[in-house]
């Protein structure tokens, strides 16, 4: 039982490779985010959810404890080494978001791989990122209407990108047959939903 869930080198390698691909996207996402930001009214928060996607994709794909957190940290460090605008702080964000998503996966016993789990993990990652932002960016001191706008937009984007789209991406990968390669025995079957 314990062995089935231990991360082997192959799990780690697959997780980090997938995460680094997302790390490249994370890096490209920075300038896009800052390009939208001057438009004001927190519209940029709608795309913030992309920074949570590594955790959900990795978990839905590999279905083992710890891969969500590992993927988010790996993606953040990939983003960092490529020269992120946020510097080393992206590692803090990666840990906060990955841990929050991982908590959701743990809460379902690492046994559910549905859209709803992905959406819940995306929402949890949003909460994680907001907690860090209240420390780092004092977002609690924004005017209430402005803060609500930020939270609603970020949550909506996260649910769509890191929840629904991540699940869609993994189902598409299942069709290519690679998912069976990387999953532990007994969880390799494709979920109907």
């Amino acid at each position: 039982m314990k062995n089935r869930f231990k991360l082997k080198l192959s799990d780690i390698l697959v997780t980090t490779v997938v995460a680094l691909v997302f790390g490249v996207i994370y890096k490209l996402w920075g300038p896009l985010y800052y390009a939208i930001k001057p438009l004001g009214m927190h519209l940029e928060q709608l795309i913030y959810g992309m920074w949570f996607i590594a955790a959900t994709v990795a978990f839905l794909l590999i279905r083992k404890p710890g891969v969500g957190l590992l993927a988010e940290i790996a993606a953040a460090s990939g983003e960092f080494f490529m020269g992120s605008e946020w510097g080393l702080a992206v590692l803090l964000s990666g840990v906060a978001q990955g841990l929050a998503a991982e908590l959701v996966f743990a809460a379902v016993g690492y046994r559910k791989y549905s859209v709803s789990v992905a959406v819940a993990a995306a929402a949890a990652a949003t909460v994680g990122s907001l907690l860090l932002d209240s420390l780092q960016g004092y977002i609690g001191d924004l005017a209430l209407w402005n803060l609500s706008l930020l939270i609603v937009f970020r949550l909506t984007g996260a649910v769509i990108i890191a929840g629904w789209m991540a699940h869609w991406l993994v189902s598409a990968l299942e069709d290519t047959g690679v998912a069976e390669l990387v999953r532990p025995v007994g969880t390799a079957t494709v979920d109907p939903d």
Partner: peptide, 11 residues
């Protein structure tokens, strides 16, 4: 295709 290929290669 990019993800599927890199997963196979990583494996």
């Amino acid at each position: 295709p990019l993800l599927a290929q890199s997963i196979r290669r990583a494996q």
